[in-house]
Design a protein around this nucleic acid. Structure first.
Lengths: 150, 150
DNA sequence: GTAGTACATTTGTACCTACAAATAACATCT
DNA sequence: AGATGTTATTTGTAGGTACAAATGTACTAC
């Protein structure tokens, strides 16, 4: 369905407007499906994202600013996301001994287990979306998005 | 800059994952710039969106479910967005006389004026982003996004 | 006409983002 | 060492999203 139909637009839209609406709308569709996946595990999208960043550290702890700069939404409130993950026992937070201003956040065994359980489900979701396009089209989409935002 | 660099990813990403991250990241960049534009006018992105939907009604009032289905984020809480717009004098809300369950929301003269002031600035923002791509590329991007989400 | 159901919207709660201000530890300059 | 500035994080506040439950109105069948 075209974007004008999706949002039942009553006025004619410029090509420039359509791209923005299409981008926002498509991302929301993906995001909503992803939330459904996470729901049984009591994780929000950004909480999952923080866990994934911490797993990428391969054992090393990450401080708050490292997490922040790797997040997709740069304005997330990392402190409060981490607070929630601590309550669930998925990460731990310690003061960095060499610089007491910094925090060292580490994913726990339980956190890793949750991610491992989710891995195949997430991959299946990603691939199911990607299957609508060929490899060439996916690469092209990535290139166009990159060019568009820069 | 490639998406892996933007989020400083430490692990190799599948093409399917890259598309999702790229889409989310690009939308956030656009959204942040758009919020900057709206900030001096004390409007949020979705409040602006509601006003635009109401203008599209060309004088006719819209009820809550009509606004809802035309929103980009289908889970927005329209009641509370409209509440805020009423407080600012940009829309009015009346009970529909023929069906007291429904509400009739209409944009005010002041609301229309705000949109008119914003129009050139918003168009300039949209075109500035679109200028990174050719007309053919923009059309292609729209087609790929549509195909991807369906 | 009233019981039951469907519809349109509002309200409640938890979590999230955006952004400014506050706090605390470290660094530097003299 | 003490004042000053910088860095890392937290806290406060306003607005948004997600979702379930509540409210109030209208419709339908007997």
């Amino acid at each position: 369905m075209k974007i004008q139909e999706e949002i039942k637009s009553t006025v004619e839209l410029s090509l420039a407007k359509k791209v923005i609406l299409n981008l926002s709308f498509t991302r929301n569709i993906i995001g909503d499906k992803f939330l459904e996946i996470l729901k049984p595990y009591d994780l929000s999208g950004e909480q999952y994202n923080v866990l994934r960043i911490l797993r990428g550290q391969k054992g090393k702890p990450a401080n708050m600013s490292v997490i922040q700069e790797r997040m997709i939404s740069k304005n997330s409130n990392t402190t409060r996301l981490v607070d929630k993950l601590i309550l669930k026992g998925l990460v731990i937070r310690n003061i960095c001994p060499s610089n007491k201003r910094k925090m060292e956040i580490t994913i726990t065994e339980k956190g890793l287990e949750v991610l491992e359980t989710l891995d195949p489900i997430v991959v299946e979701h990603e691939n199911s979306l990607a299957s609508k396009l060929t490899t060439e089209e996916l690469t092209l989409l990535n290139d166009l998005l990159e060019k568009y935002r820069n």
